[in-house]
Design a protein around this nucleic acid. Structure first.
Lengths: 327, 327
DNA sequence: TTGTAGGCGTTATCAG
DNA sequence: CTGATAACGCCTACAA
């Protein structure tokens, strides 16, 4: 008993014209008089006609849908690095009237994700680098000739990618410590920390040889534990670069709880500049990666590929040191 | 010159069987022998055949795609309340193998969002309440008989909704303040603060009449300014409930900068328990709303409606007071 | 500028 | 259990 939606045939016949003319009124290709187009558009609004999505995409072989694949999140841990990029992506696709799908990339969901890529439902994908799954997915897309943009650095084939200049960001941090008279540096690494260590060393310069390296991790708790290890191994440490802001926040919390003053006794710089960074106490000095811009740029890059651009080359995102209170 | 994907006709003819049989091998409806089904599945993997998404959805009239509509974000401000709900939604849809679309709900994007709802591309929507746009969108979905779940309270028609027990959460906070001997309460309201004020008053009890109400807003800066107003208007204030965690963080930062001790001089309770709450200094005492569960529950509710369930009723989410260091 | 008709790749229907 | 064939709703040569 439920009535079917108005389709093009019925709609056209009510207007006393052909379906072809109706179709032309909505597309940009067909030659049609401005007058009939207006009439059709107007009638479509009053009668509530819309072209069926699947029928249209079936024949045109494109959907304009963009899919964003993000790495696994750790239960209970802040995932603000990803979410800020995602909102950047979402805002940009929305502006371009591209529907956006988002998919977590767990090992268990690989089959589903591959199906999404291969069943013809989407026109392009954006994938965050850093896991085996993401690399596999990019390969799948490549084989299917599906437009693809990678966020971050992925080894192997030359993908179109939006990359961060981690090295330079870390260098800025090292230089800042050196310039503010710090002597005993430490670096807390973790996930997504490609080239940060080397950059930090280069920026710090003369005293670079005594940099203490600690493999933190990615969570607040990791930063907390890392601080305990560092202060035990090298109590004289007076400045620390953390591979991300969450680590830095954990590190600072541990330092404060041990009676260390930040930045008095020990200066701490984070990485990413997630939005909460400036509201933390002390406000975090950090390397800003322009997370939302990353999302926007990857969408724009993908758009160009989807529009048929050949040899679209990647982009590197600028970073800058944002000096606040923690260093 | 680019070769078309393998379609069902070609695939079937290579196996020497009919397209109908192939189709049955992938669905659950058709009667087919287990033996041929296995053979077809196996061959589809080696030959790389996948059913075309649009052709399939055109005839079956469903896509299984879920769309999530979220409210406008404030540029530069943390949007963690929404992002944590969104990740909950995303995780749940992923588990169910439902593709998830996400759309920001700006006034400018209403046409696009309505089109998404009306063009037949999605099977159900989840909408966060709180803006004129969200209410309009829900109405649109209702008219199109599209399954819809609302997150939060939306006046008007009786939607299927996942709601928070704001009143009880705020009551818990008021009671805690009373029980810990606080005398001069203030409440900082803002967005999404339905019934919190009344609940707080009820929980605080005897001294409820002198509660100072301040209309904060929703951002860190709002919390900061609010603190300045409150301490000026009522310096004796010794406990504050803020309508969300970001407000609370801003409030605390302002209080600390004025030399007020938290929680010594003034105890602060937030609302939502976004993940960063426990890492802030001081760690935030707050009313936990189980943000990720909200996402999961709304997906499960939507699924039931999509599967044809009639009269699916909404759910209210439990909340609890998480006592940490700020109160 | 407009209409006619064929085809997009499936699943549903109805025989066999 | 399997096969032939008619929808599904639209776009787009091609003809008028």
């Amino acid at each position: 008993m439920k009535k079917r939606r108005l389709n093009i045939k019925e709609f056209a016949s009510r207007l006393g014209i052909s379906t072809a003319t109706v179709s032309r009124a909505f597309g940009t290709k067909g030659r049609i008089s401005e007058k009939t187009r207006r009439m059709i558009i107007s009638k479509s609004e009053s009668l509530g006609y819309r072209a069926n999505y699947h029928a249209r995409n079936l024949i045109t072989r494109k959907s304009h849908v963009v899919a964003f694949f993000y790495p696994p999140l750790i239960k209970g841990e802040p995932d603000y690095f990803i979410s800020e990029i995602m909102f950047g992506v979402s805002g940009a696709t929305s502006l371009n009237a591209n529907p956006l799908q988002v998919h977590p990339l767990y090992p268990e969901s690989m089959d589903f994700c591959k199906d999404v890529i291969l069943n013809g439902s989407i026109s392009g994908i954006i994938v965050t680098a850093g896991t085996a799954e993401s690399a596999e997915l990019v390969k799948t897309a490549r084989n299917a000739a599906l437009p693809c943009v990678v966020i971050g650095h992925m080894s192997g084939e030359n993908n179109c990618a939006v990359t961060f200049d981690n090295s330079r960001g870390a260098m800025l941090a090292g230089k800042y410590f050196k310039d503010t008279g710090r002597k005993c540096p430490a670096y807390i690494g973790g996930i997504f920390d490609r080239r940060k260590r080397e950059g930090f060393k280069a920026g710090f310069g003369p005293h670079a040889s005594n940099i203490l390296f600690d493999n933190g991790g990615s969570t607040f708790q990791d930063g907390f534990s890392s601080c305990e290890r560092v202060l035990k191994a090298a109590p004289e440490t007076d400045c620390v670069l953390c591979a991300n802001d969450i680590l830095a926040i954990g590190f600072i919390k541990a330092a404060l709880s041990k009676g260390c003053k930040v930045p008095g006794d020990i200066a701490v710089i984070g990485f990413d500049d997630i939005k909460i960074a400036k509201y933390f106490s002390p406000a975090l000095t950090t390397v800003r990666l322009h997370l939302d811009e990353i999302g926007e740029k990857s969408v724009n890059l993908l758009k160009r590929i989807m529009d048929g651009g050949k040899n679209v080359s990647g982009e590197s995102i600028d970073c800058e040191l944002i000096v606040r209170d923690s260093a």
